[in-house]
Amino acid sequence: MATPSRSLRPLGPLKQALRRCRAERQQQRRHASTEALYPSLQPRYPPPSPGFRPSQAIKQNRFEEGMRKIPVIPPPRSTIKACRDPIQAVTQSQLTVLDPNGARTRLFAPSNPDRAQPGDILHVRLRNGEPFSGVCLSIRQRHQPIDTAILLRNQLTRIGVEMWFKVYSPNVEAIEVVQRKEKRARRANLYYMRQSRHDVGSVEGVVRGWLRQKSGGNVRVKGRDANSSKKKNNKRGRN
């Protein structure tokens, strides 16, 4: 740095050297302060190029580079083509097993004018166990036709007994109408018949008479539950 030619100002080159040294240090300090002390102040991304225009950058719709790509899962294939109404299909499949000829369905179908209704005297024959008969107090269909159940009330040895039977139960062999109510019941559930003043009492006598008549009748007795609605016609034909 110091040149021997300038002997007139011996300290001249030293002054110059000092100035340079100070400038360098200042430059260095500026770098150090922005980089090392405050890294958060540092720009994350390289500064835009000279010809950068923000409006165009938005149009390009660039993702941030640090972002993870979210996988897009396609929607599952619709099952509507495979089975339009699965619950209906299940019900049908159950009915074909439990009620092959549709007699039980017809006996309680709302469209059937001769259906069994609350107030009728019904006789339920069971596969294992004694038959039960009684006044139908209620016909319950909860969610599906397969859940249909009937509530029968009778008096056995002067004790009131009520029983629910599932209409489509495999244990139920047949449901037959013994006697119809003369006038249609004005309620869907005849729970008032539990009160002693409305109780019809034992229907055993009616059922016994009907059974006797049936056994004295012709051979068509077996399939009676299927066409129990034609009971009156049957009777007329027999006599």
Partner: peptide, 14 residues
């Protein structure tokens, strides 16, 4: 009311 294994329900008055 007492529900039996076969789904039928029995109930007495007393």
């Amino acid at each position: 009311k007492y529900q039996r294994k076969d789904g039928s329900v029995v109930k007495f008055d007393d």
